Amino acid sequence: MPPLMMDPIQPDQGDVSVADEALHHIRDYLDRRSDNGAVHLVVDDEHGREELVVPRGAVELLARILAHMAAGKGVSVVPTNADLTTQQAAELLHVSRPFLINLLEAGEIEYRMVGTHRRVRADSLLDYMRRDDRRRRAAADELTALTQEMGLY
Results as ranks from 00 to 15, higher is better:
residue 4 L to E: 02
residue 4 L to W: 09
residue 5 M to N: 14
residue 5 M to T: 11
residue 6 M to T: 06
residue 7 D to I: 06
residue 17 S to C: 05
residue 24 H to K: 07
residue 26 I to F: 01
residue 28 D to P: 00
residue 32 R to E: 02
residue 34 S to L: 04
residue 42 V to N: 02
residue 42 V to W: 07
residue 42 V to F: 11
residue 44 D to H: 12
residue 45 D to Q: 03
residue 45 D to F: 04
residue 49 R to H: 12
residue 49 R to A: 07
residue 49 R to I: 06
residue 49 R to W: 03
residue 52 L to N: 11
residue 54 V to H: 00
residue 59 V to D: 01
residue 61 L to V: 02
residue 65 I to D: 03
residue 65 I to S: 07
residue 66 L to R: 03
residue 72 G to P: 08
residue 76 S to A: 12
residue 78 V to N: 13
residue 80 T to V: 15
residue 80 T to M: 10
residue 84 L to H: 05
residue 85 T to S: 11
residue 90 A to P: 00
residue 90 A to I: 01
residue 91 E to F: 01
residue 93 L to M: 11
residue 93 L to P: 05
residue 96 S to Y: 09
residue 97 R to S: 03
residue 98 P to W: 00
residue 102 N to F: 09
residue 104 L to R: 02
residue 118 R to H: 08
residue 122 A to T: 14
residue 123 D to I: 15
residue 127 D to Q: 14
residue 133 D to F: 03
residue 134 R to V: 11
residue 135 R to C: 13
residue 136 R to L: 14
residue 136 R to N: 07
residue 141 D to C: 08
residue 141 D to V: 11
residue 142 E to D: 09
residue 145 A to C: 03
residue 145 A to K: 14
residue 147 T to V: 03
residue 148 Q to V: 05
residue 152 L to V: 02
residue 152 L to I: 01
